[in-house]
């Protein structure tokens, strides 16, 4: 009886070679280099889509697919999130029962600060997102916390993004704090690791698979991913937060999805947002 061995043989060798090469290129706490990651990602997409402008990546798939861009631009003329932004503004300016408001919880009264989120809090030893601080602000002032995925929290967040449009994303990674670097690395690892029954990484669709059709859909490039959140998705018919989208994507890999604002998702947001340093906030956005 003949036995089938050859395939298995090759794989073992290939893998071990790639892994040993990988050990020195920013995959451990000792070697991780966020700036090098950011530049490498930009270069990757420059090569893949030479005609796309770097600053245009905040527009997602429409930066690289001219066919659907026109349709999207028409949508943006009468943006479906407009009403939600107005509601968000009203919510933002409604004082709490104790007489204080959101403006008292944030720098610059909460206006034009979206580009600084998420950030690493040394005191708390964790990544803080905008939505997290919106709820912490409520809690500190004796108000009930909001649900994470949609509704009022998305509206307040949308208004805060709106006031920050065109501000340049500026995510800091304090080098004197190993915790920040570990959080970044954790997010990076989550993005590139295959998971779920379908064995998909975020990168499968949003790096290698960007702008290649899955059925009739074109996955967006990961560069620019977080800039336009919260987002009004036609599929949802409403506004949703970044972590709502994360949960959905996670589920699409046939994973049991994590809940919004879990540490892992916040670390992922930290990594993804760092990749967008230098690009402009354009939230809220409209997508399919």
């Amino acid at each position: 009886m003949k036995i089938i061995k050859t395939m298995a043989f090759g794989v073992g060798l290939v893998l071990s070679a790639q892994i040993s090469q990988a050990a020195d290129s920013g995959f451990t706490l000792e070697t991780v280099n966020p700036e090098a990651d950011r530049v490498a990602l930009q270069n990757y997409f420059k090569k893949r889509f030479p005609d796309a402008e770097l600053n245009d990546y905040v527009n997602g798939i429409y930066a690289v697919d001219s066919n659907s861009r026109e349709q999207w631009e028409e949508i943006e003329e009468f943006p479906p999130y407009e009403f939600a932004v107005e509601e968000g503004e009203a919510l933002f300016n409604t004082t709490f029962a104790n007489g204080k408001g959101y403006a008292d919880c944030f720098e610059n009264g909460g206006i034009g600060i979206r580009q600084n989120f998420p950030y690493w809090s040394k005191e708390e030893g964790t990544v803080k997102t905008l939505e997290m601080e919106i709820n912490e602000c409520r809690e500190a002032n004796g108000e009930k916390v909001l649900k994470w995925s949609k509704g009022d929290i998305a509206k307040v967040s949308a208004y805060m993004a709106w006031t920050s449009r065109d501000q340049v994303i500026d995510i800091k990674l304090p080098e004197d704090d190993a915790g920040a670097m570990a959080a970044y690395l954790d997010g990076k690892k989550f993005f590139y690791a295959k998971r779920g029954q379908l064995n998909l990484s975020c990168a499968n669709c949003h790096v290698q698979g960007a702008n290649i059709r899955i059925r009739a859909d074109l996955p967006s490039p990961q560069l620019g991913h977080t800039s336009h959140f919260p987002v009004f998705r036609s599929k949802w018919g409403e506004l949703g937060t970044l972590h709502r989208r994360y949960s959905g994507c996670h589920k699409d890999s046939r994973s049991h999805p994590l809940k919004p604002q879990t540490e892992t998702f916040r670390n992922l947001e930290y990594f993804q947002s760092y990749m967008n340093n230098g690009l402009a906030i354009n939230g809220p956005g409209a997508r399919k």
């Binding site: 990602l41 998971r195 990484s201 990168a203 790096v207």
Partner: peptide
């Protein structure tokens, strides 16, 4: 298995 494999393979798809 996927978890353990991921620890040593996620690096493969990172743009360099």
């Amino acid at each position: 298995k996927q978890y353990h494999y991921a620890q040593s393979s996620w690096q493969l798809s990172v743009p360099q």
